[in-house]
Design a protein around this nucleic acid. Sequence first.
DNA 1: CTGTTAGCGCGTTCAG
DNA 2: CTGAACGCGCTAACAG
Lengths: 345, 345
Amino acid sequence: MSKRSSGTVTLMDVAHEAGVSVATASRVLNGNGSRQVRPDLMDRVLAAAAALDYSANAPAQAMARGRTNVVGLLVHDIADPFFSSIAAGVMRAAERHGSIVMMYSTTGRAERELDYLATLRGQRPRAVILAGSRTTDPALRDRLGAQLRILDESGARVALISQHVLPIDTVLLENREGARLLARRLVELGHRRFAVLAGPRHLLTARDRLAGFQAGLADGGHTLPRAEVAYGDFTRDGGYATMRDLLAHDLRASCVFAVNDVMAVGAISALRDHGVPLPGGMAVAGFDDIVTLRDVTPSLTTVRLPLEEVGAAALELVMQPRAERPRLRRIRAEVVVRASTPALC
Amino acid sequence: MSKRSSGTVTLMDVAHEAGVSVATASRVLNGNGSRQVRPDLMDRVLAAAAALDYSANAPAQAMARGRTNVVGLLVHDIADPFFSSIAAGVMRAAERHGSIVMMYSTTGRAERELDYLATLRGQRPRAVILAGSRTTDPALRDRLGAQLRILDESGARVALISQHVLPIDTVLLENREGARLLARRLVELGHRRFAVLAGPRHLLTARDRLAGFQAGLADGGHTLPRAEVAYGDFTRDGGYATMRDLLAHDLRASCVFAVNDVMAVGAISALRDHGVPLPGGMAVAGFDDIVTLRDVTPSLTTVRLPLEEVGAAALELVMQPRAERPRLRRIRAEVVVRASTPALC
DNA sequence: CTGTTAGCGCGTTCAG
DNA sequence: CTGAACGCGCTAACAG
């Protein structure tokens, strides 16, 4: 019946209350199961903990154990449905492993990503997941690689979601293959004259999707006129602006591939504003299959990526012990044809 | 030039390298500014820290200081754009305050919310933000209140986003007032016969929006036939199903208000599938003004909530010292009329 | 099976 | 202005 009205209840308080040592209380409450405690003592400890409403101090445990169950997750922009779906997958899987997720949204600036990584390192995370396309800037990639190496050496598991640009575990998205399959499918549907809203030049994801699309056209003996590839932001507004520019320079294409869904939606709006009837006047395809966009009209042909699964796969990767060589987990992309790309047979 | 290839670099290592005591190193690297250190020693410490790539151990600091800079954020579903926008706002504001965000997605189950809250308590967070509508279940509310009280007593600041159902700081969303203004506006536009897709019965947000809408109609001397209020899930599919059911029972309304945008989008799809021309055959309005849905057709009349601002406001609230009485921060809702509710004048 | 005790890394008195 | 030493709460030897 010891009273401690000040501050928080500690393990020692629980031990006193139960009339056992802190070691025993620790074994009962936070033990790893390897140690046995006599049933009656166990009950007393449990009762005392409940009575005092004890909650183990995680920082103290981290300190004593030399490790935490924190998983750091860095995304480009959590408000973007692409990343929020991935985050949902990571968190769902983390829950199963008893891990907690510390999240950072870097909102695009790669520099900030490095800062966050440094902050995260201070937390002594058990693992770190970086979600988001890498850029083609080798200097940036090397600085990132250095930071990740340090984390790795400090015992944290690290994984990337996107491209395998560094020698660490990676969840690979089939950007290239997905776009290739899409191109072939569009050709099968009878489309012949294409344009691509290619996103930013330096973004690997955008580049891979463009390259895959071109490869798919080549499979069918077609090519993409250089003039019909337009670069812009990876966003809805980027899609709108890029489409508008293309329309201003007498576009010859009759089918537009936007390298992600949000751009495709922007493009559709631009086409509408320009008076182009859809889907008759122009076919449009996207990439990602963002759930929130399933109801746009015309319904969007796209390449589906199981984003929650991607996040979960990354978490599973970092929960496994480190392998000798980087593990790669490839996530399949699947073409989904909808109303925005009608067959022209 | 002491070498320590094993393990992580500690403050002691830095101190040795710089030829000073740990206390001095601590004052230089993590000091609160109240203590002065001679410039030359300071430089040596800084140089040593840089050379050894020192990173302060956050759990150890938490332990010594007795507090952390962790902010816990609980949302119903991070994949929902409503919550991911709020999360973006919280994270952006947290960055300014040097706080890190530990996030949980409870995916709807209120029970899980309590579990997460318990886990979070172990982290000794500086603050906790709960985003998401409360239910009308008083037992649940009381259990939540008890958990939050404990957190509060342990020194954590707590804030709610949504309804002011507990005596703690709250960011209030103008659900009722926004819906009321919307109803009046729709009446002004000439609409007379309404139906409401009201979401789940037990969800306060849904109830408030319904009640506000009814109040707005009453302002104009109109009423909502009881038969024209249909309950269902707060999701896209919920909107679809509810709309479909309404259509199956010879609906007399010519304007449908869905209590959130994703439901409205589902309703639009249901109307399309039922052969109703839009917006001519049926006016549709939503709530939230989800950015990702700005390009649906017909463009959606809705009530805008500045969601990122909401998240940021919550973070600012919990960063302020505790007030004697709960602080309330009201966020304005704004009616946005678009093509989905044409004027009937 | 249980209790005692030495740290984990750092902030912070308190002497010098 | 600097350094030695204590303690934060807990785990993991180790001794009993």
